[in-house]
C-alpha cells in the first residue's frame, strides 16, 4: 500500500506527459452501490414484464425472470461501459471512467473481461477480494482491471470559480504593474490558487481569528512569489490582497483563453 500511485502518468513518444487521476476504492464502491441499485431496478422491471408473460404460461414467466435477471446482472456493466466509453450509471454520477492502462482506446474484450471477472472480485462477499486487490495493487486495480489492463480514473471537471461572488471586480491596484501581475500569474501553483478560491468562498463561515490567520498565510504565500511595490499594497488587508491576486490570476489569462470548462475538459465528450 506504501507505493500506491494517485495518478497514472503516460508519456507519449513525443515527450509530452498527461495524467489520469486514479479513483480510490471508496469512490468506486459508491459508484458500485449506485450500479447495484440500478441493476435492482432494472431487474424488478424485468420481473414485472415477465409476469405479464405469465398470462400465457407461468413456467415461461419464471424462466424469463431467471434468464433476464442473469443477463441484466452480467450485461449491465459490459453494455454500458462499451456504449458510454467506460462509464456505467454509477461511474457517470461520481465522475469516474474506465480507461486503458496504457492510455490507448478501450476495447470491448477488455470491458467484457473486467466485468466477467467480477464474479471473482465479489467473493466472498461485498467485493472483499477485489477491494483487497485494489488496495494492494499500485494503480488501485481489482483483479478484473489487472486482467483487462484497465484503470478507473476520475473525469476531469474543472469549474471556473464564480469570481463575481468571491472577488467582485473593483479597482485592482496590482494591475497597475502588468509585468509583475504576469509574473504572479505564471508562478502561483494551481493548488494554492485552488485553496485561495475555497477560502474566499467560505470566508463568512470562519471564526474571525482563524479567518485573519488563514488569509495571512495565503497572502504571505502570494507575496513570496512576487514583490509588488509599496504603492500597490497600501491599505490592503491580507484578505483584500488575496482577492486582488486571484483577480489577477484568473482575470488576466483565464478569460482570455475563452474556454468554457466543464463540458470540454472531460476525457471524452459525454454523448
Amino acid at each position: 500500500m506504501k507505493n500506491r500511485e494517485r495518478s497514472l502518468t503516460i508519456e507519449t513518444p513525443e515527450g509530452v506527459v498527461f495524467s489520469y487521476q486514479l479513483a480510490t476504492p471508496v469512490t468506486r464502491s459508491l459508484a458500485w452501490a449506485v450500479d447495484a441499485a440500478a441493476i435492482g431496478v432494472a431487474s424488478s422491471i424485468a420481473a414485472k414484464v415477465s409476469q405479464a408473460a405469465g398470462l400465457l404460461s407461468p413456467d415461461l414467466a419464471n424462466a424469463l425472470a431467471i434468464a433476464l435477471y442473469f443477463v441484466i446482472s452480467i450485461a449491465y456493466g459490459i453494455v454500458l461501459e462499451w456504449r458510454w466509453r467506460g462509464q456505467t450509471l454509477g461511474k457517470r454520477l461520481l465522475g469516474l471512467r474506465v480507461v486503458d492502462a496504457q492510455g490507448l482506446r478501450l476495447q470491448l474484450p477488455q470491458i467484457a473481461l473486467r466485468n466477467l471477472l467480477r464474479v471473482l472480485d465479489m467473493l466472498p462477499l461485498l467485493y472483499l477480494v477485489g477491494g483487497i486487490a485494489a488496495l494492494v495493487s499500485r494503480k488501485g486495480q481489482r483483479l478484473g482491471d489487472l486482467a483487462a489492463n484497465t484503470v478507473v480514473a476520475h473525469e476531469r471537471m474543472w469549474l471556473t470559480p464564480d469570481l463575481e461572488q468571491i472577488a467582485p471586480a473593483r479597482y485592482n491596484s496590482l494591475l497597475a504593474w502588468p509585468h509583475l501581475a504576469a509574473r504572479l500569474r505564471s508562478l502561483a501553483s494551481p493548488e494554492a490558487v485552488g485553496m485561495a478560491v475555497e477560502a474566499l468562498a467560505r470566508r463568512d463561515g470562519y471564526d474571525p481569528a482563524a479567518r485573519v490567520e488563514l488569509f495571512g498565510e495565503l497572502a504571505a504565500y502570494f507575496r513570496s512569489l512576487v514583490e509588488f511595490p509599496e504603492a500597490a499594497l497600501e491599505g490592503l488587508t491580507d484578505e483584500q490582497y488575496v482577492r486582488s491576486a486571484l483577480r489577477v490570476i484568473y482575470g488576466g489569462a483565464g478569460s482570455a483563453s475563452g474556454i468554457t470548462v466543464g463540458s470540454h475538459a472531460r476525457l471524452t465528450p459525454a454523448k
Binding site: T12, A253, G254, T268
Partner: peptide, 16 residues
C-alpha cells in the same frame, strides 16, 4: 505556466 489548470486539463484531455 502552472496557473492555467483548466487550460492544461483541456489540452491534456485532447492530447490523451
Amino acid at each position: 505556466f502552472a496557473t492555467e489548470p483548466q487550460l492544461r486539463a483541456f489540452l491534456e484531455s485532447l492530447v490523451s
